[in-house]
Nucleic acid binder design. Structure first.
Lengths: 223, 223
DNA sequence: TACATTAATGACTCGTTAGTCAGTAATGTA
DNA sequence: TACATTACTGACTAACGAGTCATTAATGTA
């Protein structure tokens, strides 16, 4: 990266147009960062690698020095952006000592802070939209995000049921019901001008939690 | 395929390969039907018009006799498949006399029967995935589906609040909370191998209704 | 049967973009 | 200063697919 310090994802300044810099270490993350921006904005297929490269301040040829293919670049975006959050969640689960509802809330708030509320929130939409046509990415996401994410929630729910805090429930369905609103919130944030757009995510999340707390509460009102 | 009666979206039989038939009336719906199948399966951009035409048993040139562009074809798919359901919902609303919860349930079940449970369920995913790159389609869907659909739910909710059946609520947020799980259910059905795939939609919907009924119930438990 | 009308065709153009590779410029080394 | 190494470039290709249009075949009509 070197010689002259440069902000990670800055464009080349105009006068530097033809200057070649050598920054082997910094390139991959500069490229994945640029890729995330454009993938989220335009979709995976509709994003041109020329544009990704340009945004990272390099040429397309350089991109291919670091990533074998467009799909490999996408995988790297997921690996770098999403996967670490799961590790954090797994640690939270292991260390938690409060109520299960608090744990659940903590996991979901954590998701919002690290993914749902950031530009990474566009990734689930990308996966939903395009993974069918890119099986390798789909497989990677399934194995490293979906399976691990669901396992996390399943553990939290089962703990609550075991302690009598939650009424007995079908874990898989409950997981769906819990994450669907979060995913939709993330999706809406990137679906131009639709619905929730300008509304407050906080209010939405509170409403969801509120509903959830009632729905999960043991014994009273609902069988 | 003429003269002899033929199912709407049948492929050409091998020996009919070079025979040209004239069926002006039937073409548009044959083409939109084929288009829906392929759009849902592969996405809008990734679908080739050659394939749509072939599935409808015609050539690409013929497709362009009936639709001005790929986007126009997409608009026609929505117009023919989704819009009528909204008209049905509006009628239901006008004629309903029971409780507001029953009306709400009726609207959502109707949505499931006519859209969510059919191949049309793929359309919301298409819109979410690709509308950003196709502003004309986005505008059409927004005006004719989203706005009308939300108005329908808003009316049902407001009726319930007015009668004291539901607790006071922010209508827009409540709408989001109500439709998010339905949309996710539809989306999951077309997101290969992910999550809810093989689970029972009925169970999922029941869980959602159950949660909803508790969340909306007036006065007790929650403020 | 001859002629007019129109539904349908498919080869074509033309723009687009993932991926390649021979060459260039920056840096390291002696 | 000369030479070796390697990060980087950008023009190129090959393939693809939306949209066009001159031509052909089916049907209607006199």
């Amino acid at each position: 990266m070197p010689s002259i310090a440069v902000v990670p994802d800055a464009k080349l300044s105009p006068e530097a147009k033809t200057v070649r810099r050598r920054r082997k270490d910094a390139r991959p993350s500069e490229l994945t960062s640029a890729a995330l921006d454009l993938f989220v904005e335009r979709g995976f297929s509709a994003t041109r690698l020329d544009d990704v490269a340009a945004r990272a301040g390099v040429s397309k040829g350089t991109l291919y020095l670091y990533f074998d293919s467009k799909e490999a670049l996408f995988k790297a975006v997921i690996e770098e952006g999403i996967v670490p959050t799961l590790a954090a969640g797994e640690q939270r689960l292991a260390e938690h000592s409060g109520t299960s509802m608090a744990l659940l809330r903590e996991l979901l708030v954590g998701w919002w802070q690290q993914i749902g509320g950031t530009r990474l929130a566009g990734v689930p939409k990308l996966i939903i939209s395009e993974s069918r046509n890119f099986p390798e990415v789909a497989q990677y996401y399934h194995d490293n995000v979906i399976v691990r994410g669901r396992a996390l929630l399943r553990a939290a729910l089962q703990r609550g049921v075991a302690s009598g805090e939650f009424r007995p429930l079908d874990a898989e369905t409950a997981i769906d019901v819990i994450i669907a609103p979060l995913l939709m919130l993330a999706i809406w944030r990137f679906s131009l001008c639709f619905c929730a757009q300008e509304r407050d995510p906080q209010t939405y999340l509170e409403t969801h939690f509120d509903l959830l707390a009632n729905g999960l509460r043991a014994l009273e009102s609902t069988a």
